[in-house]
C-alpha cells in the first residue's frame, strides 16, 4: 500500500528503509541540481580527489536544468530531465554517500543494484510540470560550473517538493508495477 511521507534533507539511511516504490514524498530542505555535464565533472573531480561542489553524504541530486528566474521569482520552471543519461555516473555518486536521485524515466540495472547495495532511493517528479515544481522552490543559488548555464549546479531550498519513489532498496520498480492506483 503506497503512502505519503514528509522528508527533510539530509536523507538518512533510516529514512530510506521506510520507502517503497509508489510512495509519494513531500521533500523539504536542500537539494542540488546536476545533469549530464555536471555529472561528468563531479565524477572527474572524485577521481582526482578534488573537493566536490557539495557534500555527497546524505545528499539529494535533482536531474534538472532550470529556466532563468523571471523577476520576483527565485527560479524559473524546473521539472526533471530524463535520468538514464546519468546512469553512467550515478553508481559512483551512490557509493560515496548520495542518498536520493530525482528525475524521470527508468534506470539501468547498475543503478538499481547500487541503490540496493548502498541504501539509496530513486524518485520521479512529473516531467513537464516545471512551473508547478518551481512553486515549491523557496530559494536558488548557483554554486558550481556557472559557465554551463542551465547545466550548472544549483543549490535549491525546497518546501514540500512532490516526488514519487520509483526504485527502493527492496528491488521494486514503480514503472514495472504500473496499473495500480497510487
Amino acid at each position: 500500500m503506497s503512502k505519503e511521507i514528509r522528508l527533510k534533507t539530509p536523507i538518512k539511511t533510516e529514512d530510506i528503509i521506510d520507502l517503497q516504490a509508489g510512495d509519494r514524498i513531500l521533500l523539504s530542505g536542500i537539494i542540488y541540481t546536476a545533469r549530464d555535464t555536471a555529472h561528468k565533472r563531479i565524477v572527474a573531480s572524485m577521481e582526482k580527489g578534488e573537493t566536490l561542489p557539495f557534500e555527497l553524504q546524505g545528499a539529494v541530486v535533482y536531474y534538472a536544468g532550470p529556466a532563468p528566474a523571471p523577476p520576483g521569482k527565485p527560479i524559473g520552471s524546473i521539472g526533471p530531465t530524463t535520468s538514464y543519461r546519468m546512469d553512467a555516473y550515478a553508481p559512483k555518486l551512490i557509493e560515496n554517500g548520495l542518498k536520493m536521485m530525482i528525475g524521470k524515466g527508468s534506470r539501468n540495472q547498475a543503478v538499481k543494484d547500487a541503490i540496493i547495495e548502498h541504501q539509496a532511493v530513486y524518485c520521479a517528479a512529473w516531467g513537464g510540470a516545471g512551473a508547478l515544481l518551481a512553486s515549491r522552490v523557496v530559494s536558488a543559488d548557483c554554486i558550481a560550473y556557472e559557465e554551463l548555464g542551465p547545466e550548472a549546479v544549483y543549490q535549491l531550498e525546497v518546501k514540500d517538493f512532490p516526488v514519487m519513489v520509483v526504485n527502493d532498496i527492496y528491488g521494486h520498480d514503480a514503472y514495472e508495477q504500473q496499473g495500480g492506483d497510487r
Binding site: G65, A67, P70, G76, I78, G79, A129, P150
Partner: peptide
C-alpha cells in the same frame, strides 16, 4: 506566473 510550462523550452 508567466513562466514556461516546461523548463525545457
Amino acid at each position: 506566473n508567466n513562466m514556461p510550462i516546461c523548463q525545457d523550452t
